[in-house]
Design a protein around this nucleic acid. Structure first.
Lengths: 195, 195
DNA sequence: AGCGACCGTTCCGTTTGCGGAACGGCAACG
DNA sequence: CGTTGCCGTTCCGCAAACGGAACGGTCGCT
């Protein structure tokens, strides 16, 4: 079930989400494609030829007047020799904001009986983030990049310095807090055993 | 930051690249979407409702009988709260293959004085991967997803079960090995303090 | 100048992805 | 039982993305 995101706030997938025209990240696809093509030093016509797509398609894609098909994206990025994520990454990662932390969803792993969500987390100094209990069996794993983090179960938090690791069962309320006046950068891995 | 990707080489952009039907990675989008949706614990109809797409679209998408529009992909992944790359990634990231392990570079973090490389690692059973010493100060952090891993300094490896964590100083030769006959899936975080 | 090659855009008929409305299947109720 | 509710699939008219063929513009060359 909707494994609650770490900060309990869902990424605002507003129920009545009505994309008015184009998605936020979509409009950047055109410019990005154009830059990639020009970096490869080939013309629009040439790329269209190599990718086996129409020049009209490519033109419209670069100018943002078309809503390309996945096939088209595969063809174009393959012909450019870049991963398809080069056009799509970064724009719309799931960002979760709590009162004190900001976490960006980087990857989701689905293994046989477990789902892992990997976040990149920043905890600014001067505030404490409390997070309610998750479902039973959920564990969190943090590796600190920089700063000093105090985190864990609300009644028994622990401290980690850069390069160190923390993990705990998150079926109880837990907290995150930056120690000192430096923000904490860390990776957060949440493990959800599939019920 | 411009962390040069480890494999900056162009993937050969075959001149006569003629994609016959569907691209190699495209066929995996359907199953991946289905698993993400089921991991979120919601029905097809429910996801269609939240994403403002037709059930027909979603059904066809999961079964691989449609060639979705970028708009559709944005809507669906946004409603799931995952980055769009969760459906598309994996095709062309930097893959590092050793004699026994295969690691996919997911992210590079450059913080003030440290660089982190985050890998997704698979260790097949029946072989031992030896890795030479890195520079001083380099540490490795592993979280096991599935399988049982035995890894660490060559003279003192330790064992980790699913959900458990290992870390060690990797300035000495170290090893990775799957215990039992199941492959090990894990995340590997390597920390390089900037000299 | 004229000519040819190529550029990127626009027009247009065909193809196809799109959402809405059915459909059958299944489980939970009265 | 019949009814209700939701599931996932299939049918279908419509909007739109598609490739091919024009188009005007800008270079080199004769």
């Amino acid at each position: 079930m909707v494994h609650d995101s770490p900060m309990s706030a869902r990424p605002a997938t507003v129920p009545g989400s009505q994309p008015p025209a184009l998605e936020p990240g979509a409009e950047s696809v055109g410019p990005r494609l154009r830059r990639l093509r020009e970096a490869a030093g080939i013309s629009l016509s040439e790329l269209a030829r190599r990718a086996n797509v129409g020049k009209a398609t490519l033109s419209g894609l670069e100018n943002g007047t078309r809503n390309p098909t996945l096939d088209t994206l595969w063809s174009v990025t393959a012909a450019l020799g870049v991963p398809i994520t080069a056009l799509l990454a970064g724009g719309q990662t799931g960002v979760v904001r709590g009162t004190a932390v900001e976490a960006t969803l980087l990857q989701v792993f689905d293994d046989e009986a477990v789902t892992y969500e990997l976040y990149r987390m920043v905890v600014p100094p001067g505030a404490v983030q409390s997070s309610p209990a998750h479902h039973a069996g959920v564990t969190e794993h943090i590796t600190v990049f920089s700063g000093v983090l105090r985190a864990g179960p609300a009644d028994d938090p622990r401290t980690a310095h850069p390069g160190e690791h923390l993990s705990w069962q998150s079926d109880v309320p837990h907290v995150y807090e930056a120690v000192g006046d430096q923000p904490v950068h860390a990776s957060l891995l949440i493990r959800y055993p599939r019920r």
